[in-house]
Amino acid sequence: MVDAAVGVGAGGGGEPESSDSLRTFGAVVQALREHAGLSREEFADLVRFSKHTVASVELGRRMPDPALVERAEGVLGNTGALRRAAGHLARQPGLAAWFRQWARLEAVAITLDTYECRVVPGLLQTEAYARAVSLSVPPVPDEAELNERVAARLARHELLSTRRTPPCAFSFIFEQALLERHTGGEEITRELLDHLLAVIDRHWNVTVQIMPLRQPDHPGLDGPLQLLETPENQWFAYSEGQKNGRLIWDRKEISVLSRRYGKLRTQALTPADSKSLLEQMRGAL
């Protein structure tokens, strides 16, 4: 999941999340600017931010920089309205809007199963790999947005901690082809392989299985899927595609996805063989 966000992979993909408060704030800025008789370009010059940044704020796509808020106050009458409104802005930076509900469930899950066929799962990505993924998928983000996405993805790595009470049991299955692709180049792939091996060695609550390149009977052909169990033993599922994601709570759908994941587990390499494959791939680089 572009987790989410986070690029592609759980959490990782697409536009960072907007919100009603961001859109409302942007509409207020635009209304005050127009009331002052300023074009967007004139206003951008006065607050010393780019026209593109001002447009993103007015459309509710970007969290306004505190400096922009302060300068806008001076330009638009110094009423204090924008300062007060900025205090009520809410967003989960770096996460795609459709990933938000799933991210909240992840934070309390006691079981999390993930199958990926697009990118290495977000919870297992390195910073360099996350950047390479985000820069591979158009439209290419600007530096601020890229940093926001990567920071959000790396922050989610805390979910792997065994200090959580109760700790979460993680199962990851992903395609060997994702590593053979060498996203970002050999150096980034080398670092990613080292990281995956370190996660396996350090986290007793994490199981990693690799789906080999040749698997004629493959239950994951419909795409990536995730399943999780809450502390109340309720199960949810999540499915993600191009510019969208879907939280699933229907028991029949979850049953189908659970059977598919169970079959994926039997057809992927065992955890021990998966680790050996990762070591072989690392040695070959």
Rank of each mutant, 00 (worst) to 15 (best):
W249K: 07
T266Q: 15
G245E: 04
R246E: 11
E253R: 03
S258Y: 06
R259F: 14
Y238W: 12
R265V: 12
Q242I: 11
Q280R: 11
Q234H: 12
W249I: 02
L247T: 15
R260T: 15
G262I: 05
G241K: 14
L264W: 00
L264H: 04
R259W: 15
G262Y: 06
E240I: 11
R265G: 06
R251C: 02
K252S: 10
D250F: 00
G245M: 03
K252T: 11
N233L: 04
E253V: 04
P231K: 04
K275V: 09
L247V: 13
K275R: 08
G241Y: 15
S276Y: 10
I254C: 03
Y261N: 01
E232Y: 00
Y238D: 13
V256L: 09
D250C: 01
A237F: 13
V256F: 10
V256D: 15
Q242K: 09
K275Q: 12
P271S: 06
Y261H: 14
I254N: 00
S276T: 15
F236E: 00
A268C: 07
S255T: 13
L257Q: 09
Q234K: 08
R246A: 04
S255F: 15
L277F: 10
W235T: 07
E253H: 09
Y238F: 14
L247K: 02
R246L: 09
E253M: 01
L247C: 05
Y238E: 10
E232M: 01
L277N: 02
Y238H: 12
L247E: 08
T230N: 04
E240Q: 14
P231E: 02
I254D: 02
Y238V: 02
K243Y: 10
E279T: 12
F236R: 03
K243P: 05
Q280H: 09
L278I: 07
R265A: 09
S239D: 11
S255M: 04
G241A: 13
E232V: 00
N233G: 00
T266A: 10
V256W: 07
K252P: 00
I248T: 12
L264R: 05
R260A: 14
S255V: 05
L278S: 06
L269D: 12
I254F: 07
S276C: 10
T270G: 03
T266F: 13
A272M: 05
